[in-house]
């Protein structure tokens, strides 16, 4: 028997693309800015992007199940606006604000999913509609004004520290562990992949596809709620524009992380790397004093590259000849 015991570099790179890219980015910026590798700077970047990481974890679930949600940006805006109004106008206590935000997040997620289900649409199409509604509502409620003076206790969630660790980063770490656990260790996680891999086979395998979609929408909604809390709390004020464009950052990050638009596969740790790559790039461009609109151009290019890479990988896989993990067992 012919066996191939060599370490397969190509395979490794392909499976860990996002982390490799992240390391490359880090090395480049370490040269540009000597302070880049300081602990403070790293924690800072993590802190600023914790809400994106958290929301992206939720969207990953949706994309692994083979769907796309483009409403997260304004879902976060609407969520932040409603909770901020309740706290500032009605004087609702912070802890209740947190709970309402999470419940609202889940409700919005479920609304998206149910609209798609009832109209028999792809979630993508349904969210094209709902995102416009969320945007409109958010602007109507704020009358395009900024809502400031959020309660101190609420702001602490976004601005406080436990030891050297910013609270948002801590929350992101906890949620990351939770999500990795669900996806990689539990059978619910396998059901998510099964639905993304082949819906009809999943249905005939006795998996409750609708129930799973409700579950996935709830998890994603929960994450959006938490993301909204952290973003409003960190900014200390809320506008209807708060989440604008977030959906594309997140979809790009998730794709960069190796989750496919066709669902059924992908590693959740790659998604974190994906978010950080985008964060570091925009950070770096700020350092280089590039106009913010150049950053849009760059993000767009990266997004196309990420989707292109996704399709490229798929084509490669169709032709792929070597895909078996090379283990001792093979020599038998």
């Amino acid at each position: 028997m012919k066996t191939n015991k060599k370490f397969n570099t190509g395979e490794f790179l392909r499976n860990n693309m996002a982390w490799v890219l992240l390391v490359v980015c880090c090395i480049i910026f370490a040269f540009i800015s000597p302070n880049f590798f300081s602990l403070i700077n790293i924690i800072n970047i993590l802190n600023q992007n914790a809400y994106i990481i958290i929301t992206a974890l939720g969207i990953s679930f949706i994309m692994m199940a083979g769907e796309v949600d483009i409403s997260v940006g304004f879902a976060i805006s609407l969520n932040g606006v409603i909770v901020a109004l309740l706290m500032t106008k009605l004087g609702i206590p912070s802890f209740l604000g947190v709970i309402i935000s999470i419940v609202l997040g889940i409700v919005i997620g479920l609304v998206n999913m149910l609209v798609a289900y009832k109209l028999k649409l792809q979630l993508f199409m349904a969210t094209v509609g709902t995102t416009t509604i969320f945007q409109g509502l958010a602007f109507v409620m704020t009358q395009s004004k900024t809502i400031s003076d959020l309660p101190v206790a609420f702001k602490a969630i976004g601005q406080g520290y436990i030891g050297p660790m910013p609270i948002p980063v801590l929350i992101a770490i906890i949620l990351f562990i939770m999500v990795s656990f669900i996806l990689n260790k539990t059978y619910i996680g396998r059901y998510v992949f099964a639905i993304g891999g082949n819906v009809e086979a999943a249905r005939l395998a006795g998996i409750n596809v609708f129930g799973m979609k409700i579950f996935i929408a709830s998890i994603a909604g929960f994450m959006t709620g938490v993301g909204a809390i952290i973003l409003s709390a960190r900014l200390g004020s809320v506008t209807a524009n708060m989440g604008t464009g977030l959906e594309f950052t997140i979809i790009t990050a998730v794709l960069l992380g190796g989750v496919s638009v066709r669902g059924g596969e992908g590693k959740i740790s790659g998604v974190v790397a994906g978010v950080l790559i985008l964060a570091i790039l925009s950070n770096g461009m700020q350092l280089a004093r590039l106009d913010v609109y150049y950053q849009f151009v760059a993000k767009g290019i990266i997004m196309l590259a990420a989707i292109g890479f996704d399709v490229f990988q798929l084509n490669r896989k169709k032709k792929a000849t070597i895909k078996v993990p090379v283990t001792e067992e093979l020599t038998k």
Partner: peptide, 8 residues
């Protein structure tokens, strides 16, 4: 289409 999960 109905039986196998080919990618797994």
């Amino acid at each position: 289409n109905e039986g196998a999960f080919l990618e797994f």
